[in-house]
Amino acid sequence: MQPVLNPESRNTDYVFLSRWAVSDYEVRRGEIISLVSPKDPNQKIIKRVIALAGDVVNTLGYQNQYVKVPEGHCWVEGDHTGHTLDSNTFGPVSLGLVNAKAVCIVWPPDRWQNLEATLPENRKPLSVSI
């Protein structure tokens, strides 16, 4: 998730995860969420939501160039394109795997900040469902 989290690889950021924010499974584009990895149920990963159900995304190296995100799923990507294991590898993920939303960085103190929901300019979905 560089550069938003862990901008320098040697020290790690601690984030506050809010379970309440996703208790009704309503995530928005650009939010940073934590979810159970679809490949390994013991692993938790933290990614940015790029697209929601019904959106069409231009993928980077997935089996199809363009993917329409199915119902009840979302498309997640790490910010550090090319150095991340995300939906471009395992495809759209079910919202049932989402367990929290990252709200702010709490440690180290000089990095205290809220995490804004922003989409990288070049990773916006091609078409957005209403």
Binding site: D24, S94, G96
Partner: peptide, 18 residues
């Protein structure tokens, strides 16, 4: 992760997490 073939399980529906 000790699930076996033939087990009946309760799971969240992938299409509708509720």
């Amino acid at each position: 992760q000790r699930l076996c073939k033939g087990d009946i399980v309760i799971a969240k529906c992938p299409r509708n997490p509720k």
